[in-house]
Design a protein around this nucleic acid. Structure first.
Length: 416
RNA sequence: GGAGAGGUGGCCGAGUCCGGUUGAAGGCGCUCCCCUGCUAAGGGAGUAAGGGUCACAAGCCCUUCGUGGGUUCAAAUCCCACCCUCUCCGCCA
């Protein structure tokens, strides 16, 4: 309990609800025990009454019937109290964030995140032709049409055109293909139930960040993590099947509430974008290695595109609510001279698995244990597209297509 | 969207009209034992999950027959709402 309290504090969250939850839990258990005892008595009386009826001794059952009726009323009252406490407890717990991992760096916010590595970055390597923001020259070239996207859907929507659209698609296929050796490709729905959003921890804490279709009570997913994590919801997996690796390309939808006015130029922050997500269900023992694997997979994509990037270790104060440990990959945008987050590779310990009720049966063992879930973006299109067009821009203003992407662009080598 | 049928244990499948040892017959599958003795067959036993109490033991107790409510002393069985599946019709990328 002390560990939990300390962990909550390290995130900068209020420990008050925790104490209240503990209190609620104790009271609820007492009520539950009382309810079960009452039910037991009612059951026994009912069996007696049934027996008397069958033997035709109805008269002798009257007293038991009356007593059972009263016990039944009491049961109902006790059960109602227990349910009420249960609801309050549930509501409280659903809003409590996950415990950061032991080795997660402690810090107050994003400014405290240690940068672990910087790769492929030589500041003076970039020429003036690369120091142009992508929204400038790609708009001129007809590859990015933010103006008309805004006409269609409003601010912070993007539209790719011509080779720009092709490039976006190429990135997706590239990301899928380079992970196809181990990861099963899934194409899940992008509109999901409230339960599905709750399992990953996106609800109830972050309801304002998601698009909600009231009429059908469906939510637009902010990431494929949401449907993929619920894929095995309420299932018991076999240990031999773990780790189970999945990948999915989907559109992702984010309201970006509270972010209005920040990073709004070009592709820096958009409401809808394409992403390839990689995800794994693992045993607690497999989780650390799996986390490393996902990070390698995710950074491999930007590395193969010869983009500069760095790995950031997210500290306790900046950690997502469901995560126990997260590494961000930030790709360098020479045109804006900024590091753009393009992947968050997270280990959720059993936090999501508890919400989604995903368990596994240990080989040879009895009972079930919660799995661990991990995931990260294998490639998020807009920011990689932005960094790529800036980095690969040539002095004459044309854009070279990185060799790994050419097979996906009908052999095209240069966008003019 | 309209009409009809249906949702029972790992699977198949009784029971639901007439509520009462039905956590649930029977079968299949699986596990163990015996017989036989060789890739057949037979005999016997076992075979859900979650939760509470507790030593994550045994035992005891509770919950679960699509979900949620209701009626009743008692519900898989009666009533209401919803969800899902299947068939037919309509519509449609």
């Amino acid at each position: 309990m002390e560990r939990v309290r300390a962990a909550v504090a390290s995130r900068g969250d209020d420990p008050g609800p925790l104490a209240e939850a503990l209190n609620l839990d104790v009271r609820r258990r007492h009520l539950l025990a009382r309810r079960d005892d009452l039910r037991h008595e009612v059951k026994q009386l009912s069996a007696e009454i049934g027996k008397l009826h069958r033997e035709g001794r109805r008269g002798e059952a009257v007293e038991s019937t009356e007593r059972s009726r009263m016990l039944g009323d009491e049961t109902k009252a006790v059960a109602a109290q227990a349910d009420e406490l249960g609801r309050r407890l549930e509501d409280l717990l659903m809003r409590v964030a996950n415990l950061p991992a032991e080795d997660c760096p402690v810090g107050a916010g994003a400014e405290d995140n240690p940068v672990l590595r910087v790769e492929n970055f030589t500041p003076d390597r970039y020429g003036p032709h690369q120091r142009v923001p992508h929204w400038d020259f790609t708009a001129e070239m007809g590859l990015l049409d933010v103006e008309r996207a805004t006409k269609l859907s409003g601010a912070m929507f993007a539209m790719f055109r011509r080779e720009g659209a092709m490039l976006a698609r190429a990135l997706v296929q590239f990301a899928l293909d380079r992970n196809a050796d181990l990861y099963e490709e899934v194409r899940p729905p992008t509109l999901v139930h409230t339960d599905t959003m709750t399992s990953t921890g996106h609800l109830p804490r972050f309801a304002d960040d998601a698009y909600h279709l009231e009429r059908d009570n469906l939510w637009a997913i902010p990431t494929a993590e949401v449907p993929l994590t619920s894929l095995c919801r309420d299932e018991v997996l076999v240990e031999d099947d773990l780790p189970m690796r999945l990948m999915a390309h989907t559109s992702c939808f984010r309201r970006e509430a509270g972010a209005a006015g920040r990073d709004t130029r070009g592709l820096l922050r958009v409401h809808e974008f394409d992403k390839v997500e990689i995800l794994a269900y693992a045993t607690p023992e497999q989780a650390p290695a799996m986390h490393t694997e996902l990070l390698e997979r995710a950074e491999g994509a930007v590395a193969e595109l010869s983009l500069a990037y760095r790995i950031v270790d997210i500290c306790t104060g900046d950690l997502g609510g469901a995560a126990a440990r997260t590494f961000d990959i930030e790709v360098y945008s020479p045109g804006t001279d900024r590091w753009l987050e393009c992947s968050s590779v997270s280990w959720f310990s059993d936090y999501q698995a508890r919400r989604a009720n995903v368990r596994y049966r240990p080989a040879g063992g009895r009972g079930t244990r919660l799995v661990h879930t991990l995931n990260g973006s294998a490639l998020a299109v807009p920011r990689v597209w932005a960094a790529l067009t800036e980095t690969w821009r040539r002095p004459d203003g044309s854009i070279e297509v990185p060799p790994p992407l050419r097979p996906y662009m009908r052999g095209l080598e240069v966008i003019r």
